[in-house]
Design a protein around this nucleic acid. Sequence first.
DNA 1: CCTATTTCTTAACTTAAGTGAACGAATCAT
DNA 2: ATGATTCGTTCACTTAAGTTAAGAAATAGG
Lengths: 192, 192
Amino acid sequence: MKNILFDFMSKYVSLTEEEKNAIISLDLFRSLKKGTILLKEGQKSKNSYFVLKGCIRAYYVLEGEEKTTAFYTEMEALTPPCVINKTPSEYYVSCTEDCILLVSNSDMEAEINSKFPKFELMCRILSEELLAKERIDFDEFKTSSPEQRYLNLIQKRPDLVQRVPQHQLASYLGIQPHSLSRLRARILEKKT
Amino acid sequence: MKNILFDFMSKYVSLTEEEKNAIISLDLFRSLKKGTILLKEGQKSKNSYFVLKGCIRAYYVLEGEEKTTAFYTEMEALTPPCVINKTPSEYYVSCTEDCILLVSNSDMEAEINSKFPKFELMCRILSEELLAKERIDFDEFKTSSPEQRYLNLIQKRPDLVQRVPQHQLASYLGIQPHSLSRLRARILEKKT
DNA sequence: CCTATTTCTTAACTTAAGTGAACGAATCAT
DNA sequence: ATGATTCGTTCACTTAAGTTAAGAAATAGG
């Protein structure tokens, strides 16, 4: 697991043994069971998550309905908006599978970053990349139909379609579960 | 104009006179006429934009149609994905009004950031904030209907509805111009 | 293993968005 | 000023998504 992390980080900065040890000594690795809730609506939190194994999802509860808006799988990171804005969380985060996560908190990050400018640099580059990616995803979403979005998802994250329940995928695609069922049937018919 | 910039920056870091002078000496301020194209599809660019006055928009040309996906107005910043990913741009950026912009390039930013760790810190915080905001916007988009999105826009960015052509707003809302017209008529009827 | 719950699909109906055509209004270029 | 293009609205029609209800399939818990 440590190697997976350091491989990931090496894409951004090269680390000395001292720096690696500093990270390990923080003791950030956590094993969590499927269904574990990491963050609840209304809660204040300083925790960020990096998925080493498994899948976590962010979802709102609106009028009693769960609305899933994001999945984070291997090598993906989530710092919930409530951590950045220091406000109570608008949404829930839970493990959709057994997970191994890196859980860090923002105070600790600030300390590490001021001690190792290299980490500060890595965090800046990483969040710039994530922002660029998020904007492209948003743009694609805006400019395509539900059907195109589903076909696009099959191409780009085929694993998600397999490992995640349909009704969670539906709201991720911005539609009702019924519509996703119908849409899938429609696609199957076209193929034949 | 310089004051507007330094007021903005002061929310993130406090600057010494030396640092302010370093920024001014970079000579980043640009006045641009309405209609000026800042970035074209296929073009490689290292430029980021910060809007001091006016409005710029990002749009794709898909099957001959312009699809506007974002507007940036006063105090908003755009670093196009092509700058981050070092790839040819997927979209266009143009001025929808006469603008005063700060135009910086990524090489220069890297140099400044390594010289002044304070700027590195500011950039990290800023992009984390923008990422959090972008995710919330995306979540809201996913979980609401075109009509709700339009009503939401009137609340959150009433200026946009005034200063930007309808057909550009439409694709920003993820719908066809015709649908926006109809939707507006529908809302007016409900009110009476 | 069996029941209870959740999840997924299908179908019928309603509502809204996509599409194409037509028209007036606004804008732009000459 | 005027003719041409672009822009916004309206209408009729098509297509797809929202909604409600019902039942089959899968899953979880005892």
